[in-house]
Design a binder for these strands. Structure first.
Lengths: 222, 222
DNA sequence: TGTACATCAGTGAACGCGCGTTCACTGATGTAC
DNA sequence: TGTACATCAGTGAACGCGCGTTCACTGATGTAC
């Protein structure tokens, strides 16, 4: 989506390679949307593209690498969405609200992508370091949005707990405990609503999930 | 875990059948814990039990039925846990807190079981009606615990939205909007913390997830 | 108590299938002189 | 501009594998007289 990797001038071959690689991913996402992440099959993707199975090995070392690449893209996509949203500040609306709506839009746009990031983990799998880095970038953006909010009220026991950790936080990003507490609430509460909504657990309950989301966001901005 | 199905006197054969059926499920859960739900294989279970693959067809019509049965058991297990917890009321602790700790204990006891209920949904799958019934039983227990809490404060716009629905709620269980709002917050917030914790998203962040859970619970009881 | 029969758990062979992956190859595209 | 060579995308055959599931069967357990 955004410009990542070598952005220099490309030879026609490189351009073609990148193009086919993108198309493979596109079909992979479509397949995931239909049958879930675990059902992703290289041969099926190839067939859908009118190619033979082994051809895909020109573009990915194997199934695992493809999936890892999709996960990486998903994290990057969320980071890009957050970053783009962050740049529309100063319009009166608090930064947290902007991030919240960006998150919701991103989640609804592709539920399987959301679940690939925040859904059921595969017991064996461990994400590469660069993905972890993007994940903490996202956390930092949430933190920054929280830090600019007014912080009144007494210090809670959880904030005291955080204080006691000596702020050994990702990137050495020193955030006040109240901001971290708020960022965690932001993250967990909105994820709680979104994941249950996307999984269909609110079906048949009548209410509008968007309004529940808005209500939770209101509570966070209180 | 609890007594479900025919509890009448059993012939030795029936007893044996039930016993083997349970053992199959036990191995199924173990296998899921190792490789996730999608990797569940009848042949692998049979091999682990020292049986041949086709033998399992005496106990389950096929793979899909086994999985559905596991999902059903998971929902029932949570319902039983909630019910057992509800019966220990009156000790000063609010019912919601009791339910919360029961939920957390149940989730930590078997993360894969938690994710089978609340994790990434399989795009095609639709749960049978009796499972939906158990799910709404769980919701009702949360609702009841919320209904007994003092409800002060002004009516929020989300509560007005619920009011406007005319309470067309599962089982015709008429709950005041403020209780439903609170039950939804209870559910989504605790799920938010638990699912991110179990998925390992808090790893390396230093703080104790149990304390975050407790902090969120405190907010709900406020 | 003993015998004849029915029930049913479990086996082993076999089916077709789709998977990930390798390999030697063809043919087109790009590069160097 | 034209020719010789290198690069590389894609093919088709083949590999071994494990899967879910069926089928005809054996042998043990339970039942009826």
């Amino acid at each position: 989506m955004a410009d990542h990797g070598d952005t220099g001038t490309q030879t026609p071959r490189e351009r073609y390679r990148a193009q086919v690689q993108e198309e493979i991913k596109k079909h992979a996402w479509e397949q995931m949307a239909v049958a879930g992440a675990s059902a992703l099959s290289l041969n099926a993707i190839a067939k859908q593209m009118g190619m033979s199975g082994p051809a895909l090995y020109r573009y990915f070392a194997g199934r695992d690498e493809l999936i890892t690449e999709l996960i990486r893209d998903a994290y990057r996509s969320l980071a890009d969405t957050f970053r783009a949203a962050s740049e529309t500040v100063g319009t009166g609306e608090p930064g947290l609200a902007v991030l919240a709506h960006a998150l919701r839009g991103w989640a609804l746009a592709d539920p399987q992508r959301y679940f690939l990031v925040y859904g059921t983990p595969v017991p064996g799998y461990h994400a590469p370091d660069d993905i972890t880095v993007i994940a903490s970038e996202n956390m930092v953006m949430m933190l920054d949005a929280c830090a600019e909010l007014p912080s009144d009220g007494p210090v809670t026991s959880f904030e005291a707990h955080i204080e006691g950790l000596g702020s050994r936080w990702a990137d050495g990003h020193a955030a006040p405990p109240v901001a971290l507490r708020r960022a965690l609430a932001f993250w967990t509460r909105l994820h709680g609503v979104l994941s249950l909504e996307l999984a269909g657990h609110f079906n048949g309950m009548g209410f509008d999930p968007a309004l529940l989301f808005a209500a939770e966001l209101d509570d966070l901005l209180r």
